[in-house]
Design a protein around this nucleic acid. Structure first.
Lengths: 236, 236
DNA sequence: CTGGTTTCTCAGGGGATTCACAGGAACGGG
DNA sequence: CCCGTTCCTGTGAATCCCCTGAGAAACCAG
């Protein structure tokens, strides 16, 4: 996960909602990346100049400038840096249209951290700038279980398995953290949107779904640590 | 995708509408090419002199000079460089028609990125200058499905299939990204014109059309990933 | 101008997905 | 061994997403 130069991947987060910046920063630092943030367009451009990030997370709704204007200024400083846009659900069609085509990407608010991290990882992998740093293939593997982040294909022992969108996200999170206990709260924070208002036992439910599809008959890979959470690990 | 000399293909984008330059630059960089831009004719000539592009994307409507004048000056600097003209729909197509005879090409605004990239690729391939750099055949193949980007011919299992323009562009985009889930937003951005204001369910509609023509009876190659997007892949 | 083709909107329907609820099973401490 | 807690999972309802037919509008060729 290191850049060619040697240091960690650098990400600049630009959003005016402080709690959101906080949330994102923590999640990205958890990935081992170096994070700086800015609360408005002017600050973003300033930060970009000296921080030289490998990727930018940019809210399209900033107090001082239009999102496109910020983007323009950023491109002056960093012509090739990939940008992940954050946007309200209903504004997608108008303003983002076209932008993602260049290789940039976007997620709509409210998003799940898992999704932001996954997209950012994809952007960086494809951008070439710090590509060598994230040259994990798009294929995750734990034991005989594999998950392809590009094709969204999952297989155990060569046999394909169909997962729904939520099941897929949950499994991806587990497989990104093999042999590590993840609490239900962590999972909820990470896989479900940050404004999810439902009951916490959806996690139990979806773990149950996953087991039925992934562990069916075979030696189980998804384990419960009572009172702590769940973890995935191969074999014994 | 590298030039004979060694570096990436170099493209100069000339247009006075900043957002459009932005859009194009991103899309072309995403192709792995090196991009410089200019906002008027004078700038274009200056840039061409020291950047020495392998191809030029030139808006015919510039503030300071007539498109033809710019073309003339460009030819002084770069006698053999191929040019892709951008022109308004209603503008005189006769004048352009003569120009394209020389090996150049044009697209009308509003265009789709998929089309611009494809034409540019064709121009460069045919120009010889950086031809070796783009020697991907013009023939795409996924399983027994083939698509020729030059002749626009599509066939499955040897049997020819007639597609409309939009269907063709959509299929080309899918086939350029085989085994990869493409979201409806990504598809819209890339295949439809940048100013398309319609609903995202045209994508569903055209996927439906494509399936009818391509998957009819045979084992399906176009797959839906509910909640994620579509992908094309051969066989199983 | 006319008829055919192509693009796109709209709306209905069907099936997949998500989630709450609740009863039962498993666990662990005393 | 008993009991409270935690976890598992069947059921069912609401919702969402996707597919497709029908037809209007735009476009094109003759």
């Amino acid at each position: 996960m290191l850049r060619p130069g040697g240091g960690p991947v650098r990400v600049l987060v630009v959003d005016d909602e402080a709690p959101l910046v906080e949330l994102l920063s923590m999640a990205l630092r958890y990935e081992g990346w170096e994070v700086r943030s800015a609360g408005d367009g002017a600050g973003a451009v300033r930060r970009a100049r000296d921080f030289r990030p490998d990727a930018v997370v940019l809210d399209m709704m900033l107090p001082d400038m239009d999102g496109l204007a910020v983007l323009g200024r950023l491109r002056c400083e960093l012509p090739d840096v990939p940008v992940l846009f954050l946007t309200a659900k209903d504004s997608v069609e108008d303003r983002i249209a076209g932008l993602t085509a260049g290789g940039d990407d976007y997620v709509t608010k409210p998003f799940s951290l898992e999704e932001v991290v996954a997209r950012l990882r994809g952007l960086i992998r494809r951008s070439g700038t710090a590509a060598a740093a994230v040259r994990d293939e798009s294929l995750l593997a734990v034991g005989d279980l594999t998950l392809d982040e590009d094709s969204h294909e999952v297989a155990r022992g060569g046999e394909g398995i169909h997962l729904t969108a939520t099941e897929f996200e949950l499994l991806r999170f587990l497989m990104r953290n093999p042999r590590r206990v993840l609490s239900k709260a962590q999972i909820l924070d990470r896989v479900w949107s940050y404004d999810f208002g439902g009951k916490a036992n959806v996690v139990e439910l979806y773990i149950s779904y996953l087991r039925r599809k992934i562990d069916a008959g075979r030696p189980p890979m998804i384990h419960t640590r009572r009172g702590a959470g769940y973890l995935i690990k191969p074999g014994g």
